[in-house]
Design a protein around this nucleic acid. Structure first.
Length: 202
DNA sequence: TAGGCCATCTGGTCCT
DNA sequence: AGGACCAGATGGCCTA
């Protein structure tokens, strides 16, 4: 296939009207997707990007295929965002009403699951000690308690440690997704309040 | 204004 | 062949 099968400089036409995609503003955007000004100078590792044929034409069939692919891709990303929203809904609320970003949501969920796991684990260890149920989480803690510098949901969800943004961050064992200290969270001194947050848990 | 976040477009690759 | 997935590129919006 010749490099030209890459695409159109003239495809602006497909600027998304397919979806009412709920969210916000990008509709109005519909940014003209122009080809980068200096296509020829791409570093080799970069992929070739949209460039029409030398004569600037694009076969209709190919163009249609691209439009359909864009449509699917958009839909796919909307589904992904929906899933993210669903995930946000089951995470504890926190005072700051701003929405967690995608990465924050994922990290927060990761830590939250880990904390719940720890809660269960410790509860199991302490079986037979009625009334001593260790409860690691509380919405307050997740939200605004001052366990650590800036310990709110965002700090929980963030990871400012140097390893934070590395892919290995989530690759560690399920039992300890990362060093809890990285989030200013230590299960051993966080044993309170969960009951009020999730009645019936444990 | 810079930087972060996001939506979208796009081409490549893998899979069915 | 066509769809799903992925990652790079681009530009808009928002906030510090």
């Amino acid at each position: 296939m010749d490099s030209v099968d890459s695409v159109y400089s003239d495809i602006d036409s497909n600027s998304c009207d397919f979806f009412p995609h709920t969210d916000t503003e990008e509709d109005s955007r519909g940014s003209p997707r122009s080809v980068s000004p200096e296509p020829e100078q791409q570093p080799q590792k970069k992929r070739r990007r949209g460039r029409g044929r030398s004569d600037g034409t694009v076969p209709v069939v190919r163009k249609n295929r691209r439009v359909k692919a864009n449509d699917r891709e958009r839909n796919r990303m909307h589904n992904l965002n929906d899933a993210l929203d669903t995930l946000r809904e089951v995470l504890p609320d926190f005072p700051d009403e701003t929405k967690l970003t995608k990465i924050e949501t994922l990290r927060f969920a990761h830590n939250y699951i880990w904390a719940l796991s720890e809660t269960i684990r410790i509860a199991d260890l302490q079986t037979g000690k009625p009334g001593d149920a260790p409860l690691l989480l509380s919405s307050a803690r997740l939200g605004s308690d001052a366990q650590s510098p800036g310990s709110d949901a965002r700090s929980w969800s963030s990871s400012d440690s140097s390893s934070s943004s590395s892919p290995s961050y989530c690759a560690s064992s399920p039992g300890s997704p990362a060093r809890p200290e990285d989030y200013g969270y230590r299960p051993q001194d966080a044993l309170f309040g969960f009951r009020s947050f999730v009645p019936g848990v444990y």
